[in-house]
Simulated scan of single mutants.
Amino acid sequence: MTAYWLMKSEPDECSIDDVLAAPHATVAWTGVRNYQARNFMRDAMRVGDGVLFYHSSCAEPGIVGLAQVASGTRPDPTQFDPASPYFDAKSPADKPRWLLLDVQALKKTRLIGLPELRTTPELVEMVVLQRGSRLSITPVSADHWRFITQQMMGGCG
Rank of each mutant, 00 (worst) to 15 (best):
E116N: 08
W98A: 04
N34K: 11
S57N: 12
S136K: 15
L129C: 10
L135Q: 10
Y35P: 10
R42T: 05
M152L: 15
Y35M: 07
R131Q: 07
R110H: 07
A59P: 05
W5E: 04
T149H: 03
E122F: 05
H55M: 14
G157C: 01
F87R: 06
Y86S: 06
A70K: 05
P75F: 04
H144R: 00
Q68W: 01
Y4H: 15
L117K: 11
K8T: 04
S84Y: 11
Y86C: 10
V32G: 12
V69I: 15
W98C: 02
T73H: 00
G155V: 05
V32R: 12
K107T: 14
T30G: 12
P61S: 09
G157L: 03
L117A: 09
A70M: 02
L135V: 08
D18V: 06
C14W: 08
E60Q: 15
C156L: 12
R110E: 09
L20W: 03
A22K: 00
T30N: 14
W98P: 01
K8Y: 13
R118Q: 11
R146F: 09
Y54S: 04
A67I: 01
E116H: 14
V140D: 02
T149F: 06
S56V: 08
V51S: 08
R46C: 10
V51M: 10
E13S: 15
R33K: 09
S136V: 12
C156V: 12
E122V: 00
T149P: 10
T2V: 11
M45Y: 05
D49R: 07
P85K: 15
R74A: 15
S56K: 06
G72D: 15
G72N: 07
G132E: 07
A89H: 00
I112M: 12
P115W: 14
G72Y: 02
Q130T: 06
N39F: 02
R46S: 09
M41A: 03
R42N: 13
P23Q: 07
A70V: 05
G31F: 12
L111D: 11
K107A: 13
S57D: 13
K107G: 10
R33N: 06
S133N: 15
V103H: 03
L106R: 13
Q130C: 00
Y35H: 15
K108N: 11
G62W: 12
R134N: 01
A44S: 02
P139M: 09
M153S: 04
S15G: 06
F53I: 14
V51R: 11
L100Q: 05
Q150E: 11
Q68H: 13
M152W: 09
C14K: 11
V32S: 06
